[in-house]
Structure formats: structure tokens, C-alpha cells
Design a protein around this nucleic acid. Structure first.
Length: 224
DNA sequence: GACCAGGCACATC
DNA sequence: GATGTGCATGGT
């Protein structure tokens, strides 16, 4: 059981070490959502190249993507890898956006988070992490994003077992911070920063075996 | 040349 | 339900 005290201690250590991360890089909610799909199993540098291509064509806008040939879209996002799959996934998401919300991310924002999450997860190509990234970073909904870094960092520091599923890990963070009395805005800001900090510490200190020395989370809990 | 990077769906057992 | 596999570019 990870206590609230430990969760807050992790956050404080990371924030003290790295400061605000200013996530998610993206100019509009729609661009953030595209980025969430583009970055699947891919580093962010490649995503930036793809977004640059889309921007150069002036097509980072729902209806342009909606009416674009699949092959054209795939060629523009080529630098991210898996470009054929991701082109299809983007089309699926944009079709949903156009069909259900007239292509307007602001209208999507009006839907209850839990209901919207279920509907996003029905879209082919949108799994837990992508759905939560869209909810948190594009739509300001309080959903904690669990990615491979979050998982790895927590396992390395003995906070979770490696057989824990996505929503079990997410539940650790949701348990203490989704009280009705708290304003959503604070939790969204907190989850936003927290996830970005996990990625930061994971990239620097948790990419080799064993953990690198000097990690701000060193000694947070005895390793198993 | 091997390995990794801000996953996901699908087949198979 | 767990495990394996395809998808693919660009950096180290």
C-alpha cells in the first residue's frame, strides 16, 4: 500500500529536483490529442518532426485531417514510425470528434470525464494511456497518466509489484486526490506536473539497471 | 548493428 | 488471462 504521504513525498522530491515541466507541448487541445497518438512507443523528437510536417501543410485542424487521404496523412507523420497504424488511429479519433462533437474539442470537454474515457477507449488505437493523456492534457480532466516510465520508476523503488495493471497503478494516485471537496483544477495541475516529472526522472535515472546514483527518489522506500 | 523510445490490437495457447 | 508478435522511424 502506497500511502498519501509517500505519494506527496515523491512529488515534492521530483519537483524540487526538476521544477515545473510545462507539459504538454502542444498549441491547441487538438494538437495535444494528435500528439498523444503520435507518441505511442516513440520518442518525442520524432513526434515534433511529424507535427512540424502537419503544421507546414496547415492541416492541424480536425476537418483537414478528416478529409485527408489516409496515405497522405501517413506520409506526413512518417518520422514517428508505425505511420500506417497511427494514420489509421488518428483518422479513427478524428472521425469520432467530427461525428460526436462537430470537430470541436471544446464540446468534448463538456462531457463527464468517466463517460468520455469509456467512449475514447472504444476507439480503435486508443488505449488507457492515450485516453488519459487526452483527458488530462487536452481536456483538463483529472486522470493520472501511467506510462512505462511511471511504472518502471515505481517498480525500481519498490513502490509497486511488476504485475500491477494500468488501472491499479492509476488508482494509487486517484485514491487520495479525487475527493469531491477538492477543486478539479488543482488536481489537474497536480497530475499534469506529476506525470511529466515521472518521465523526467525516468529518462535521467531509470534507464539503466540498477538505478543511477543521485536519483532524487533514492531511499524513498526500501527496495524489495 | 543492436537497442530503445511518453502503446495498442490481435492471434494463439 | 497471459504471452507473443507486428507495426517502423530516428538517435545513441
Amino acid at each position: 500500500m502506497v500511502s498519501k504521504k509517500i505519494i506527496l513525498s515523491i512529488f515534492n522530491r521530483l519537483f524540487k529536483a526538476f521544477g515545473p515541466q510545462n507539459w504538454w507541448p502542444g498549441e491547441t487541445p487538438f494538437e495535444v490529442a494528435l500528439g498523444a497518438i503520435l507518441t505511442q512507443n516513440t520518442n518525442w523528437q520524432n513526434v515534433e518532426r511529424a507535427i512540424l510536417n502537419l503544421r507546414r501543410e496547415g492541416v492541424i485542424e480536425p476537418f483537414s485531417i478528416y478529409s485527408m487521404d489516409l496515405s497522405k496523412l501517413a506520409s506526413l507523420i512518417r518520422p514517428v514510425g508505425y505511420y500506417n497504424v497511427k494514420a489509421r488511429r488518428i483518422k479513427e479519433f478524428v472521425s469520432f470528434l467530427v461525428r460526436e462533437f462537430h470537430g470541436n474539442m471544446e464540446l468534448m470537454k463538456e462531457i463527464d470525464g468517466n463517460i468520455l474515457r469509456k467512449r475514447l477507449l472504444l476507439i480503435n488505437g486508443i488505449g488507457f494511456e492515450t485516453a488519459d493523456s487526452i483527458l488530462l492534457y487536452a481536456l483538463d480532466k483529472p486522470f493520472f497518466v501511467v506510462d512505462s516510465y511511471t511504472r518502471r520508476v515505481m517498480i525500481r523503488h519498490g513502490l509497486i509489484h511488476d504485475d500491477m495493471g494500468y488501472e491499479d497503478i492509476q488508482g494509487i494516485f486517484h485514491r487520495y486526490f479525487l475527493d469531491k471537496c477538492k477543486t478539479h483544477g488543482d488536481v489537474v495541475k497536480f497530475f499534469n506536473e506529476f506525470h511529466a516529472l515521472f518521465v523526467k526522472v525516468g529518462k535521467i535515472y531509470c534507464n539503466t539497471e540498477p538505478c543511477c546514483q543521485g536519483c532524487p527518489l533514492d531511499g524513498i522506500k526500501r527496495r524489495n
